[in-house]
Structures are given as structure tokens and as C-alpha cells.
Design a protein around this nucleic acid. Sequence first.
DNA 1: TTGAAAGCGCTAACAC
DNA 2: GTGTTAGCGCTTTCAA
Lengths: 339, 339
Amino acid sequence: MITRSNATIKDIAKRLGVSTSTVSRAINGSQDVSNKTKEAVLELAAQMDYQPNTIAQSLKNQRTNIIGVIIPETVNHFFSRAIAGIQEVASTANMNIMVCQSNESQMIEMNNVRTLLNARVDGVIVSVSKETKEYGHFQNLIERKMPIIFFDRIADELEASSVQSDNYDAAFKATKHLIEVGCKRIVRVSGPQNLYNCKWRLKGYRDALESSGMSFDDDMVIYTHYHATDVEQYTNSLLDRYQPDGIFAINDEGAMKMIKVIKSRGLRVPEDVAIVGINNDLYGEYIEPSLTSIEIPAYDMGKAAANMFLESFQKEDLAPQQRIIKSKLIKRQSPIESL
Amino acid sequence: MITRSNATIKDIAKRLGVSTSTVSRAINGSQDVSNKTKEAVLELAAQMDYQPNTIAQSLKNQRTNIIGVIIPETVNHFFSRAIAGIQEVASTANMNIMVCQSNESQMIEMNNVRTLLNARVDGVIVSVSKETKEYGHFQNLIERKMPIIFFDRIADELEASSVQSDNYDAAFKATKHLIEVGCKRIVRVSGPQNLYNCKWRLKGYRDALESSGMSFDDDMVIYTHYHATDVEQYTNSLLDRYQPDGIFAINDEGAMKMIKVIKSRGLRVPEDVAIVGINNDLYGEYIEPSLTSIEIPAYDMGKAAANMFLESFQKEDLAPQQRIIKSKLIKRQSPIESL
DNA sequence: TTGAAAGCGCTAACAC
DNA sequence: GTGTTAGCGCTTTCAA
């Protein structure tokens, strides 16, 4: 074992000739300690650089002040920003967070739950993996009355609190933008329909078309995965088949890859084909043409989820709540805007 | 308090009519338990879904199996990849990580240390904040004999283990590349010289120039901050003053911003001005022209740091080690490569 | 206002 | 092989 000097309550008690309970009370600001002893304890504690052992406190109090967080991957701007938001709120409540990533795997996600349970976290904030089809591991947490908040990737069949972005509205607005800018043949590149977000975005796209007197054509929808490696292939194929003049891409990364392919075929962006992405990634601003995109408020979603957590942690048996955070269409690609 | 059923060793002991120590031994695979009782315990444990209380274990064993990690910011591809690497190695050793971010602030960093100390982590892996000038908080950890590993942003005045990338070599190679490609007037955009990385990269740049018979001119070096908001200003000013035909940018983000400014002045990239970035960010590949960049092996650096940690955690009083991970120059911008 | 004592869940030295 | 006991550092009830 490694030597590490750490003053304990006992050390202080001994040096002051009082009992450990008195020291504990003094440190925790209890009323029934004389001012004199309180001062003495506090002074010595400061002098000895006493730090309460949170492990011992956790064991005693049956609460760790740790919020477990499960996300698909840290290496993703959206999720890392969300974590920053969670962190921010957690720290104001003197809580820490413990982050696990599922790598988009249901099995790892199940292990994550186990890990957090073993660490005795006070509750969890989760964004569900893409691969997850079965929610037993989360149901288990709910049955244990452990506070659980879903964000962005929610488990819609469970009775639990959640924070989402306004997928439908955002998709509606993005599609409307393409229409306003003059696009007649708008392709949607969508993710799998078992994902809640994708489903609602598709609805938004569809309704935007129809509300503008354009007809929805399922052939104009490409169903793919998020981290598609086949962007080049499907871009070429959709260009060949549908001659779109507008594309509502799956996300910014997809959009940028598509732009590259489109340009390589001698088409101009956005004059010949206009594109809207999702996420408002850092670099959308710097590329040429700059990319119009939907900014999903990851940070605010993280904060909202953490606040919701805090609330349901304090009040027992609170009914599940749903919260929707508004996203924002960032219009760029100036050549088109000037139309 | 929230109801949460969790079987304990005591519950198992009671149901089996044995003592808790026997159960503990059985579960921990001790030799001196009869096979019969061992089996019985294990079976009941599984049936009751017994999970050891890690808090209690930590308190008893004086070790938490948690590695503290302090990084400047999670919302940064480099660091989030490094965390992934640390995580990967940690999990093979059944350890967890607890991540704090300093937001590039020395004060927050000092709080981070305190937080991790309070959480009784078994040691820390650190990438120092840019703002940190004073290393007392880390020195404190070293004095407590707590394993501490620095990576990327190291504290070179402390006697501690560290993992770095080959800053000097990478800068040398990058500059050489610009020279080989025909650049005669190469500007270096550098960070503050109190940062170890920046210092060595500048050396590499300098030596590359001089080894090619070109002279180093400090006027051709722009000293700036990382997240410079003044890229437009300094790019314009350096373009006016030095008419460079090559730029070794501070990082990819800076490079992309510069490209935008350069193009807006009617200059071509890379024909008129060639650029090399650092980091090999995701989008360097998609922009036009694609960006040549140095790929810093964040993931491997994280793994190396975690392995180093594990080693120094196991062997007490191990002498500090230094490890350098090779980076890689990713050549893109094909127009120039064909010169 | 203070102290004694029990206990959170676990491990380990010691005894049998 | 198994049980008893003590203790990790803290909080809290109860009694004084």
C-alpha cells in the first residue's frame, strides 16, 4: 500500500481532546456545538488540511453524490458538449459525474449499467446506444427507483423522464428552408427508423414538403447508418437516379462528404444542389461553401437533463417529465441566401 | 432516502447459515473454503444478484480502483480520444476513471486535484492547463507518493512520468515537407513559449529551415494563443508583411480559418500559399483543398499513459519514466504533392 | 453541549 | 475450513 497522509476526524478529536462526534458536528455546521469548540475544530481542521473521506461518507450515508452518465461515445462533439452541460450543473450541486461510453453497443451499455450500479451512483443520465433494442437494463433501474433521465436518444417505450431536441420542428424548418431557396427535388438522407430522432425528423421533412404542396416520395429518402462509410456510393447513386437540387443530409459529416462527391461531378454547391446538415459542427463555418446546419443545443440539453436529475433525486416518486429544447437553423451558404 | 434493494454479504451468510467471512472468502476465490460451501455461496450470490459494494471495499482496502484524469477540455477531439485510450486500458485492469476538466484555468485545475483527492482516486493522469504557471498542486500529489502521469501538456519542471508526442520531429518533418514542395518563405504560427509543445515545435521548425540552408527569422514567427479569435487579423497582417508561400499553422482549426482568409484575398491554396496543420481533425479531409496535417496519436498516448500509471501503481517507488509516441504527417492537398 | 456506541459493507488477522 | 473480531472513516441516535 502506498503512503498517503490524510488527516481524519479522529486525529482532530485526539489533538483537541474531544470526541469524534463533536468534531463531525462542528465540521458539518451542526447547531449544538459550542462556538468555542466549533472554532477550535475548524481551525485545526484547516491547519491539518483535513478533507472528509467521501468514501466513508458514502458508505454511511448510502449516497455517493455521483451521477452516472452513459453515452454512445465521448469522441463526438454532441455528446462531449452534453457532458460539459451535465458537469456544469452537477458541480453547482456538489455532485460529481462518472461517464461510461457504450460504443453504440447494447452489450457494453448493459455492462455500463452494472458498473454504475456497483459504484453506487445516485442515479443515471443516459443517451441510448443505436444498437439497443431491449431496455431491460434500464427497466431494472427504474424498478429500483433509481432516478434515470434520458436525453437525445431516448427509450420511448419506458416511463421515464427525458430531454430531447425538437427533431420534428427542426427538420420541418430545414426542409422549408430548402424549399424557400428554390429547391424542387429534395432528398432526405435518414438514419434507421428504430431511432426516435430519425423517425421524427423524417416526419418533419415529410410535412414540410406536403405543407408546401410538394409530394412526399419515399424513393427520395435514403435510409442509412450514421457513420456511413458508403456516402460516396449512395451520393453517386442518388445523384444519378433523382437529380436532386436539395439534400437534407443525415448530419454535417455526411453533408461534407456529400459535398465533396457532388463537386467532383462538376456540380456546384449550392447553386445546383443545396445542402443542409445537422449538428452545426465546428468546421461547417470554414468550408466553402459554408454549411447551413441545424444546431442541436447539446450543452443546454445536458444542463436540462442534469437539472431534471437533481429534481427527481430530491423529490421521491416524482412523475416522469419530458422536456424539449429548441434547436436553431444556422443559415449559411451565402450564395443561396441571396437568391 | 431511496429504496434500493441490494443483497449484501450478510444476507447471503444469513440465508446459508455461515459467517460473512466465509462468504467473502468464497466470493473472492480464496483457497481455504470447502468446495461445497463455495459452490453454495456462489450459487446463492448469483441467484440474489449479489454485487459487491465497491464503496465498502474501497473503505476497507484503502484503494478505489479509480484513476483520476485532468484534462483542459473534453470538447476537444484530441483529449476525448486520449480519454478513450485511457479508458480502454483502465477497463482491462478493472479500473474506472473519473474525468475532470480544468477549462484551461489553473484555479479550476487546483480544484480538480482537490476533488480527485477527496474521491480518493488511486492516482492521476494529467494534461496541464495552458494557464498553469505554478505546479504546487501537482507537487503535493508527488509528495503524497500518489502515482501521477503527465501526457501531452507536461509539467517539465517536476520529476514525474510523462507521455509526449514527438513535437520536435513532427515540426521538423512538417517544415521539411513545405520546403520540399517548394516553399521559400515559411511562416510559423506558434503558441506561447511557456508551453512545452510549442517550444519544441518551434525548435523543429527552426532546425528544418536551417538544415535546408534557409535562415530562421523570428519575424516570421507569429506568437499567439491556441483558440485565437484574431486569426483573421494576424493572417491578413502576415500576408501583407511577409508574402509567405508556406504556413505551418498552429493547428487544423487555425489552418482552416487561415485558408478562408487567404482565399478571400484571391490567393490560391496550396499553389500560392501551402499550409500544414496539426491534429488531423476530422474535417481536414473533406475541405478543399484537403489539409495536410500532423496526426498526433491521442488514443495511443492515452493508452501509454494509462499503462504507465498501472505500472507505477503496482510497483512502489518506481523511477519516473518518459515515453514519446510518434506522430505522423498526413500529406494531402494533392495539387502540391504532384509538383 | 458533549460523549459513547452502533453500524454502513466489506476484509483479514487470529483463533479454533 | 470456518467463525470471531476488529476496523476502514464517518454519521447519528441515545443518554448524560
